[in-house]
Design a protein around this nucleic acid. Structure first.
Lengths: 139, 139
DNA sequence: ATAGATAATGCAATCCTATTGCATGCAATG
DNA sequence: CATTGCATGCAATAGGATTGCATTATCTAT
Protein backbone atom coordinates (compact mmCIF):
# COMPACT_ATOMS: atom_id res chain seq x y z
CA UNK A 1 0.00 0.00 0.00
CA UNK A 2 1.29 3.41 -0.92
CA UNK A 3 2.73 5.20 2.10
CA UNK A 4 0.98 8.47 1.33
CA UNK A 5 -2.49 7.01 1.65
CA UNK A 6 -2.56 8.10 5.24
CA UNK A 7 -1.44 11.57 4.25
CA UNK A 8 -4.17 11.83 1.66
CA UNK A 9 -6.78 11.09 4.29
CA UNK A 10 -5.36 13.55 6.78
CA UNK A 11 -5.22 16.27 4.15
CA UNK A 12 -8.92 15.86 3.59
CA UNK A 13 -9.62 15.95 7.29
CA UNK A 14 -10.49 12.27 7.49
CA UNK A 15 -9.27 10.22 10.40
CA UNK A 16 -6.95 7.62 8.88
CA UNK A 17 -8.15 4.34 10.27
CA UNK A 18 -7.03 0.99 8.92
CA UNK A 19 -10.38 0.39 7.27
CA UNK A 20 -10.39 3.73 5.53
CA UNK A 21 -6.88 3.26 4.25
CA UNK A 22 -7.88 -0.07 2.80
CA UNK A 23 -10.88 1.42 1.06
CA UNK A 24 -8.90 4.36 -0.31
CA UNK A 25 -6.14 2.07 -1.48
CA UNK A 26 -8.67 -0.07 -3.27
CA UNK A 27 -10.27 2.94 -4.91
CA UNK A 28 -6.91 4.21 -6.10
CA UNK A 29 -6.27 0.94 -7.88
CA UNK A 30 -9.46 1.15 -9.93
CA UNK A 31 -9.36 2.24 -13.53
CA UNK A 32 -13.00 3.24 -13.55
CA UNK A 33 -15.73 4.25 -11.16
CA UNK A 34 -16.42 1.47 -8.71
CA UNK A 35 -19.72 0.23 -7.31
CA UNK A 36 -20.20 -0.93 -3.71
CA UNK A 37 -20.44 -4.56 -4.79
CA UNK A 38 -17.00 -4.40 -6.38
CA UNK A 39 -15.43 -2.91 -3.27
CA UNK A 40 -17.22 -5.47 -1.16
CA UNK A 41 -15.68 -8.40 -2.97
CA UNK A 42 -12.23 -6.85 -3.22
CA UNK A 43 -12.18 -5.99 0.46
CA UNK A 44 -13.82 -9.19 1.62
CA UNK A 45 -14.40 -10.04 4.42
CA UNK A 46 -14.70 -6.42 5.48
CA UNK A 47 -18.15 -5.39 6.55
CA UNK A 48 -20.39 -4.06 3.83
CA UNK A 49 -21.94 -1.37 6.01
CA UNK A 50 -18.60 -0.07 7.10
CA UNK A 51 -17.53 0.30 3.49
CA UNK A 52 -20.78 2.03 2.77
CA UNK A 53 -20.29 4.49 5.59
CA UNK A 54 -16.66 4.99 4.69
CA UNK A 55 -17.70 6.00 1.20
CA UNK A 56 -20.26 8.38 2.65
CA UNK A 57 -17.57 9.97 4.74
CA UNK A 58 -15.19 10.16 1.80
CA UNK A 59 -17.88 11.84 -0.24
CA UNK A 60 -18.67 14.44 2.41
CA UNK A 61 -15.01 15.28 2.78
CA UNK A 62 -14.45 15.60 -0.94
CA UNK A 63 -12.25 12.56 -1.27
CA UNK A 64 -14.49 10.76 -3.74
CA UNK A 65 -17.53 11.63 -5.77
CA UNK A 66 -20.56 9.47 -6.25
CA UNK A 67 -21.83 8.85 -9.74
CA UNK A 68 -25.28 7.62 -10.56
CA UNK A 69 -24.91 6.33 -14.09
CA UNK A 70 -28.34 4.77 -14.23
CA UNK A 71 -27.05 1.27 -13.62
CA UNK A 72 -28.98 1.11 -10.40
CA UNK A 73 -25.91 1.09 -8.20
CA UNK A 74 -24.03 4.20 -7.19
CA UNK A 75 -20.40 4.20 -8.30
CA UNK A 76 -17.52 5.97 -6.62
CA UNK A 77 -14.36 7.52 -7.98
CA UNK A 78 -11.50 9.44 -6.45
CA UNK A 79 -11.88 13.16 -6.91
CA UNK A 80 -9.33 14.66 -9.24
CA UNK A 81 -7.04 17.42 -8.09
CA UNK A 82 -9.18 20.35 -9.16
CA UNK A 83 -12.03 19.25 -6.94
CA UNK A 84 -10.28 20.55 -3.88
CA UNK A 85 -9.12 23.82 -5.35
CA UNK A 86 -12.31 25.04 -6.98
CA UNK A 87 -14.68 23.75 -4.41
CA UNK A 88 -16.80 22.46 -7.25
CA UNK A 89 -16.81 18.76 -7.43
CA UNK A 90 -17.67 16.41 -10.17
CA UNK A 91 -17.75 19.01 -12.91
CA UNK A 92 -16.33 16.67 -15.47
CA UNK A 93 -18.05 14.30 -17.82
CA UNK A 94 -18.66 10.65 -17.06
CA UNK A 95 -18.71 8.06 -19.78
CA UNK A 96 -20.68 4.87 -19.34
CA UNK A 97 -19.89 2.10 -21.81
CA UNK A 98 -22.90 0.21 -23.08
CA UNK A 99 -20.82 -2.90 -23.65
CA UNK A 100 -18.50 -3.35 -20.68
CA UNK A 101 -20.73 -1.20 -18.43
CA UNK A 102 -17.70 0.57 -17.00
CA UNK A 103 -18.02 4.20 -16.04
CA UNK A 104 -14.99 6.33 -16.72
CA UNK A 105 -14.27 9.86 -15.54
CA UNK A 106 -13.21 12.20 -18.31
CA UNK A 107 -11.59 15.02 -16.37
CA UNK A 108 -10.29 16.69 -19.50
CA UNK A 109 -13.68 16.97 -21.10
CA UNK A 110 -15.09 20.11 -19.61
CA UNK A 111 -18.77 20.84 -19.46
CA UNK A 112 -19.70 23.66 -21.81
CA UNK A 113 -21.62 26.72 -20.76
CA UNK A 114 -25.35 26.29 -20.48
CA UNK A 115 -27.98 28.94 -20.92
CA UNK A 116 -30.84 28.01 -18.67
CA UNK A 117 -34.27 29.63 -18.93
CA UNK A 118 -35.02 32.66 -16.76
CA UNK A 119 -35.20 31.87 -13.08
CA UNK A 120 -33.29 28.62 -12.98
CA UNK A 121 -30.24 28.90 -10.75
CA UNK A 122 -27.73 26.11 -11.34
CA UNK A 123 -25.62 24.72 -8.53
CA UNK A 124 -24.41 21.28 -9.50
CA UNK A 125 -24.29 19.50 -12.78
CA UNK A 126 -24.15 15.91 -13.85
CA UNK A 127 -23.32 14.95 -17.41
CA UNK A 128 -23.27 11.31 -18.32
CA UNK A 129 -22.53 10.13 -21.84
CA UNK A 130 -23.38 6.60 -22.83
CA UNK A 131 -21.75 4.87 -25.74
CA UNK A 132 -18.78 2.66 -26.51
CA UNK A 133 -15.44 3.11 -24.78
CA UNK A 134 -12.03 2.79 -26.51
CA UNK A 135 -11.41 -0.63 -25.03
CA UNK A 136 -14.62 -2.05 -26.41
CA UNK A 137 -14.57 -0.35 -29.81
CA UNK A 138 -11.20 -1.88 -30.61
CA UNK A 139 -12.48 -5.40 -30.42
CA UNK B 1 -60.02 13.30 -20.26
CA UNK B 2 -58.93 14.77 -23.51
CA UNK B 3 -60.48 12.92 -26.44
CA UNK B 4 -57.19 12.66 -28.35
CA UNK B 5 -55.49 10.59 -25.67
CA UNK B 6 -56.50 7.48 -27.52
CA UNK B 7 -55.14 8.92 -30.75
CA UNK B 8 -51.83 9.70 -29.11
CA UNK B 9 -51.44 6.09 -28.04
CA UNK B 10 -52.38 4.72 -31.44
CA UNK B 11 -49.93 7.04 -33.17
CA UNK B 12 -47.16 5.58 -31.07
CA UNK B 13 -48.26 2.04 -31.82
CA UNK B 14 -49.57 1.43 -28.31
CA UNK B 15 -52.82 -0.39 -27.86
CA UNK B 16 -55.14 2.13 -26.18
CA UNK B 17 -56.50 0.30 -23.18
CA UNK B 18 -58.42 2.03 -20.42
CA UNK B 19 -55.52 1.69 -18.03
CA UNK B 20 -53.04 3.17 -20.46
CA UNK B 21 -55.28 6.09 -21.24
CA UNK B 22 -55.58 6.81 -17.55
CA UNK B 23 -51.83 6.75 -17.09
CA UNK B 24 -51.20 8.93 -20.12
CA UNK B 25 -53.87 11.38 -19.03
CA UNK B 26 -52.28 11.59 -15.62
CA UNK B 27 -48.85 12.17 -17.11
CA UNK B 28 -50.16 14.94 -19.34
CA UNK B 29 -51.48 16.79 -16.32
CA UNK B 30 -48.10 16.88 -14.60
CA UNK B 31 -46.02 20.00 -14.65
CA UNK B 32 -42.80 18.14 -13.93
CA UNK B 33 -41.34 14.67 -14.26
CA UNK B 34 -43.35 12.23 -12.20
CA UNK B 35 -42.17 9.32 -10.08
CA UNK B 36 -44.01 6.01 -9.80
CA UNK B 37 -45.19 6.80 -6.27
CA UNK B 38 -46.93 9.94 -7.48
CA UNK B 39 -48.73 8.10 -10.26
CA UNK B 40 -49.62 5.38 -7.83
CA UNK B 41 -51.44 7.71 -5.49
CA UNK B 42 -53.08 9.71 -8.25
CA UNK B 43 -54.35 6.60 -9.97
CA UNK B 44 -55.25 4.76 -6.80
CA UNK B 45 -56.52 2.04 -6.55
CA UNK B 46 -54.94 1.00 -9.83
CA UNK B 47 -52.37 -1.73 -9.51
CA UNK B 48 -48.81 -0.55 -8.97
CA UNK B 49 -47.28 -3.22 -11.18
CA UNK B 50 -49.59 -2.43 -14.04
CA UNK B 51 -48.59 1.23 -13.89
CA UNK B 52 -44.98 0.15 -13.79
CA UNK B 53 -45.36 -2.01 -16.85
CA UNK B 54 -47.39 0.63 -18.63
CA UNK B 55 -44.56 3.09 -18.14
CA UNK B 56 -42.09 0.52 -19.47
CA UNK B 57 -44.24 0.12 -22.54
CA UNK B 58 -44.57 3.86 -22.98
CA UNK B 59 -40.83 4.23 -22.74
CA UNK B 60 -40.14 1.54 -25.33
CA UNK B 61 -42.58 3.11 -27.73
CA UNK B 62 -41.16 6.59 -27.27
CA UNK B 63 -44.18 8.01 -25.52
CA UNK B 64 -42.32 8.97 -22.35
CA UNK B 65 -38.73 9.12 -21.27
CA UNK B 66 -37.37 7.96 -17.97
CA UNK B 67 -35.18 10.30 -15.96
CA UNK B 68 -32.87 9.18 -13.23
CA UNK B 69 -32.20 12.38 -11.33
CA UNK B 70 -30.39 10.72 -8.48
CA UNK B 71 -33.37 10.89 -6.16
CA UNK B 72 -33.48 7.11 -6.07
CA UNK B 73 -36.76 6.88 -7.90
CA UNK B 74 -37.04 7.00 -11.67
CA UNK B 75 -39.21 9.81 -12.95
CA UNK B 76 -41.20 9.88 -16.15
CA UNK B 77 -42.14 12.67 -18.50
CA UNK B 78 -43.97 12.86 -21.80
CA UNK B 79 -41.61 13.07 -24.71
CA UNK B 80 -41.69 16.41 -26.43
CA UNK B 81 -42.48 16.68 -30.12
CA UNK B 82 -38.90 16.58 -31.40
CA UNK B 83 -38.33 13.18 -29.86
CA UNK B 84 -40.36 11.49 -32.55
CA UNK B 85 -38.93 13.46 -35.44
CA UNK B 86 -35.23 13.19 -34.75
CA UNK B 87 -35.28 9.69 -33.39
CA UNK B 88 -33.10 10.93 -30.57
CA UNK B 89 -34.84 11.01 -27.30
CA UNK B 90 -34.15 12.84 -24.16
CA UNK B 91 -31.57 15.16 -25.64
CA UNK B 92 -32.67 18.09 -23.56
CA UNK B 93 -31.56 19.18 -20.15
CA UNK B 94 -33.30 18.21 -16.94
CA UNK B 95 -33.37 20.50 -13.98
CA UNK B 96 -33.72 19.10 -10.48
CA UNK B 97 -34.61 21.59 -7.78
CA UNK B 98 -32.78 21.10 -4.51
CA UNK B 99 -35.65 22.64 -2.57
CA UNK B 100 -38.91 21.30 -3.99
CA UNK B 101 -37.17 18.25 -5.48
CA UNK B 102 -39.14 18.60 -8.70
CA UNK B 103 -37.50 17.63 -11.93
CA UNK B 104 -38.37 19.79 -14.90
CA UNK B 105 -37.63 19.17 -18.55
CA UNK B 106 -35.98 22.10 -20.28
CA UNK B 107 -36.61 21.30 -23.93
CA UNK B 108 -35.31 24.65 -25.10
CA UNK B 109 -31.95 24.25 -23.44
CA UNK B 110 -29.99 22.24 -25.93
CA UNK B 111 -26.97 20.23 -24.97
CA UNK B 112 -23.78 21.79 -26.31
CA UNK B 113 -21.25 19.96 -28.41
CA UNK B 114 -18.82 17.80 -26.52
CA UNK B 115 -15.33 16.85 -27.53
CA UNK B 116 -14.67 13.44 -26.07
CA UNK B 117 -11.19 11.94 -25.87
CA UNK B 118 -10.01 9.71 -28.72
CA UNK B 119 -11.87 6.43 -28.92
CA UNK B 120 -15.01 7.30 -27.03
CA UNK B 121 -18.07 6.93 -29.22
CA UNK B 122 -21.11 8.69 -27.78
CA UNK B 123 -24.61 7.34 -28.26
CA UNK B 124 -26.85 8.77 -25.60
CA UNK B 125 -26.45 11.63 -23.25
CA UNK B 126 -27.96 12.66 -19.96
CA UNK B 127 -27.50 16.11 -18.54
CA UNK B 128 -29.00 16.91 -15.17
CA UNK B 129 -28.59 20.29 -13.55
CA UNK B 130 -29.30 20.69 -9.88
CA UNK B 131 -30.09 24.02 -8.31
CA UNK B 132 -33.08 26.18 -7.50
CA UNK B 133 -36.08 26.44 -9.79
CA UNK B 134 -37.99 29.68 -10.51
CA UNK B 135 -40.85 28.71 -8.22
CA UNK B 136 -38.57 28.23 -5.26
CA UNK B 137 -36.22 31.18 -5.84
CA UNK B 138 -39.15 33.61 -5.75
CA UNK B 139 -40.07 32.75 -2.20
C1' DA C 1 0.40 6.78 30.86
C1' DT C 2 -4.67 6.89 32.07
C1' DA C 3 -9.52 8.03 32.13
C1' DG C 4 -13.14 9.97 29.84
C1' DA C 5 -15.01 11.49 25.60
C1' DT C 6 -15.60 10.85 20.82
C1' DA C 7 -15.67 8.47 16.68
C1' DA C 8 -15.47 4.09 14.00
C1' DT C 9 -16.93 -0.52 13.36
C1' DG C 10 -19.76 -4.71 12.95
C1' DC C 11 -24.03 -7.08 13.05
C1' DA C 12 -28.95 -7.21 12.60
C1' DA C 13 -32.83 -5.46 10.79
C1' DT C 14 -35.57 -2.54 7.85
C1' DC C 15 -37.17 0.41 3.96
C1' DC C 16 -37.95 1.14 -0.68
C1' DT C 17 -37.68 0.63 -5.59
C1' DA C 18 -37.42 -2.42 -9.30
C1' DT C 19 -38.62 -6.72 -11.31
C1' DT C 20 -40.43 -11.40 -12.33
C1' DG C 21 -43.83 -15.52 -12.17
C1' DC C 22 -48.11 -16.99 -12.75
C1' DA C 23 -53.03 -17.16 -13.24
C1' DT C 24 -56.90 -14.60 -14.97
C1' DG C 25 -59.40 -11.47 -18.00
C1' DC C 26 -60.18 -8.95 -22.14
C1' DA C 27 -60.01 -8.19 -27.06
C1' DA C 28 -59.03 -8.75 -31.86
C1' DT C 29 -59.17 -12.29 -35.61
C1' DG C 30 -60.54 -15.77 -38.48
C1' DC D 1 -67.83 -18.89 -31.56
C1' DA D 2 -63.15 -20.52 -30.62
C1' DT D 3 -58.40 -19.36 -30.56
C1' DT D 4 -54.66 -16.70 -29.74
C1' DG D 5 -52.17 -13.02 -27.82
C1' DC D 6 -51.69 -9.27 -25.01
C1' DA D 7 -53.02 -6.75 -20.70
C1' DT D 8 -53.90 -6.98 -15.94
C1' DG D 9 -53.64 -8.08 -11.02
C1' DC D 10 -51.75 -10.39 -7.16
C1' DA D 11 -47.93 -12.49 -4.85
C1' DA D 12 -43.32 -12.91 -4.19
C1' DT D 13 -38.51 -11.70 -4.64
C1' DA D 14 -34.15 -9.25 -5.53
C1' DG D 15 -31.06 -5.79 -4.53
C1' DG D 16 -29.45 -1.31 -3.04
C1' DA D 17 -29.65 2.04 0.54
C1' DT D 18 -30.06 3.11 5.26
C1' DT D 19 -30.66 3.09 10.35
C1' DG D 20 -30.30 1.30 15.38
C1' DC D 21 -27.59 -0.36 18.67
C1' DA D 22 -23.87 -2.47 21.10
C1' DT D 23 -18.90 -2.94 20.91
C1' DT D 24 -14.33 -1.44 20.00
C1' DA D 25 -10.77 1.68 18.66
C1' DT D 26 -8.87 6.28 18.80
C1' DC D 27 -8.07 10.88 20.50
C1' DT D 28 -7.57 14.49 24.17
C1' DA D 29 -6.63 16.36 28.30
C1' DT D 30 -4.75 15.62 32.55
Amino acid sequence: MSPNIETMLIEKGIQPTAMRMLVLDCLLKQSSATPMTELESELHPADRITIYRTLKTFEEKGMVHAIDDGSGATKYAICVEDCSTTGHHDLHVHFNCNICKQTTCLPNTSVPELKLPEGFVPAELSLIVKGVCPGCSNR
